[in-house]
Amino acid sequence: MEAVDEAVVLEPGVNAANEGQFLTFMIGEQQYGVEIKYVTEIIGIQNITSLPDLPHFMKGIINLRGKVIPVVDVRLRFGMEERDYDERTCIIVVSINDTNVGLVVDTVAEVMNIPEESIEPPPKVNSKANGNRFIYGLGKVQDNVQILLDTQKLLFDEELEQLSAIT
């Protein structure tokens, strides 16, 4: 909490084009981050309507103020164990190529500045599996490491097409 408190202090004079700003969230004990420029809004968990014949990580759709938005469970997308939703579960609505997608996460943490020099590329291991394809870099904030996600790659193209088809 202390670390978070310090991390969220926004330094004045940081680029106005919101470069280096990330919204961080929790999956289990690990903190992940997405570039804030993709984030539309954060909402609490909603009633999700499931649809037939979708990939298993696609939980369904929600109605957000009259707009139908598909919802992806990040845990399932990462091949992690599924967990029941609770009052802390949030949906981060991101906009990718003018498509809005809801990402279900355990909970959101904060908005954080991570300078370019503090970001390292992901490790070159496990090339066969595509486990690292979502990772944009590893952000070092004090002693912690934020896994910064490449929102573009968070979904496959074909999957995105499916999403477009849905909306």
Binding site: L10, A16, A17, Q21, V39, R88, V111
Partner: peptide
């Protein structure tokens, strides 16, 4: 407190998107 936190985060996201104007 949770709802307030969400609102604050949304506001922060909004402010970030607003860039210099949202500072």
């Amino acid at each position: 407190a949770f709802q307030t936190n969400l609102l604050a985060l949304n506001a922060a996201v909004e402010a970030a998107r607003a860039g210099v104007h949202g500072k």
